[in-house]
Amino acid sequence: MGLAKTDTQSAQDVGQTDGNIITTTIDRVINWGRKNSLWPMPFGTACCAIEMMATLASKFDLSRFGSEAIRFSPRQSDLLIVSGRISIKMMPVLKRIYDQMPDPKWVISMGACASCGGVFDTYTLIQGVDQFIPVDVYIPGCPPRPEDLIDAVLQVQQKIASGASPKGVEHLLET
């Protein structure tokens, strides 16, 4: 699927003329579909995962933004939410799950621990998962509020809508 930027002069996803004809591009339609049906793969290893559950539950209801179809199989998902501490024993598991997800895929690093190790500056903890997998959106907080996770999902949606590539494939496009 093409991921290149298209048609920069119009801010609209869809242009409409007088004769009831809709014009758009294939990329825009596909990205419109993608952004509104993100299937998250939750990788919850700590308290951030509790906030992630709250985000999905009725009070905050992530399904309002089209991202409620949580998949516990990485092969069926396109958004990896890393929420919690990742130890050096867990990192290969996370890497493998990321590798199993089909392209295009996005990654949210939720909370201080996943993003930078948080307060756990210790022998066993990865000081930021972005050392090993590409991260698209970071969420600060310990743990972040559900609103923060919703905001991160919306930012991923904006990235998709803008036609930007996921961090995971940028290095492929450069060469």
Binding site: I88, Y123, L125, I126, Q127
Partner: peptide, 11 residues
């Protein structure tokens, strides 16, 4: 040592 002996960078 609290921060280990480089395991978290070199594993």
């Amino acid at each position: 040592p609290l921060r280990g002996r480089g395991e978290r960078e070199s594993f």
